[in-house]
Computed example of a mutant assay.
Amino acid sequence: MDDMRYNKTKNDWRIEMGYSNSARLGYEFESIIADIFRSYGFTATLTDGKYHDIDVIKGEIKLAVEVKLFRDIKANNNAVLSAAEKVCHSAKESDFIPVIVSGNVVDERIRVRLKEYPTLFIVDIQNLLYLVDNDEVLRSRLLSVLSFSTDDLLPQESTELKKYNLNKLPPQKALHEDLIERIKKWEPSLKENTLYEKLCTDVIKYLFDSDLALWKEQQKSNDDLFRFDLICKIKDGTNKEFWTMAEKHFGTKYIIFEFKNYTEQITQKEIFTTEKYLYLKALRGIAIIISTKGSDKNADKAIRGTLRENGKLIISLTNEDLIEMIERKAIDDNLPAEFLSEKLDNMLVNLEK
Results as ranks from 00 to 15, higher is better:
304 R>G: 05
171 P>F: 06
255 I>P: 04
51 Y>E: 14
230 L>N: 02
91 A>T: 01
345 D>A: 12
340 L>D: 05
352 E>R: 15
335 L>F: 05
212 L>I: 02
286 I>S: 09
131 L>M: 14
112 V>Q: 14
169 L>I: 01
247 E>K: 06
349 V>C: 07
61 I>C: 14
161 L>G: 13
95 D>G: 00
82 S>Q: 10
36 I>M: 08
88 C>D: 07
225 L>I: 00
310 N>K: 13
34 A>V: 00
107 D>H: 14
15 I>G: 09
235 K>F: 09
56 V>L: 03
254 Y>K: 08
68 K>W: 02
292 T>W: 03
317 L>T: 09
270 E>P: 02
291 S>Q: 10
305 G>E: 15
69 L>T: 05
104 N>W: 11
5 R>I: 00
203 V>N: 14
62 K>H: 09
134 N>D: 10
13 W>Y: 15
343 K>S: 02
84 A>Y: 02
116 E>P: 00
162 K>L: 13
326 I>Y: 14
204 I>R: 10
64 A>T: 01
352 E>Q: 13
210 S>L: 11
30 E>I: 07
208 F>R: 05
43 T>C: 03
72 D>L: 07
353 K>Y: 08
108 E>N: 08
227 R>C: 03
120 L>M: 00
19 Y>W: 13
176 H>R: 02
155 P>F: 04
294 G>T: 00
279 Y>V: 04
329 K>P: 05
148 F>T: 06
176 H>M: 01
9 T>A: 07
286 I>Q: 08
73 I>G: 09
137 V>Y: 13
42 F>Y: 15
237 G>F: 01
195 L>R: 12
38 R>I: 06
45 T>R: 14
334 N>T: 06
6 Y>P: 04
3 D>G: 01
334 N>I: 01
35 D>T: 03
153 L>H: 02
147 S>M: 13
132 V>G: 08
294 G>E: 00
189 S>C: 11
155 P>L: 08
124 D>M: 04
186 W>Q: 09
282 A>T: 03
109 R>D: 11
89 H>W: 01
21 N>H: 11
20 S>P: 09
273 T>P: 05
322 L>M: 14
286 I>V: 10
44 A>Y: 10
184 K>P: 00
204 I>F: 11
92 K>P: 00
257 F>S: 08
353 K>A: 11
13 W>S: 10
230 L>M: 11
8 K>F: 07
23 A>T: 09
231 I>L: 06
120 L>C: 04
12 D>L: 12
257 F>W: 15
270 E>T: 11
347 M>E: 06
329 K>N: 07
156 Q>H: 12
5 R>A: 08
263 T>R: 09
268 Q>M: 12
54 I>M: 11
331 I>G: 03
292 T>D: 05
18 G>Q: 04
8 K>R: 15
8 K>D: 04
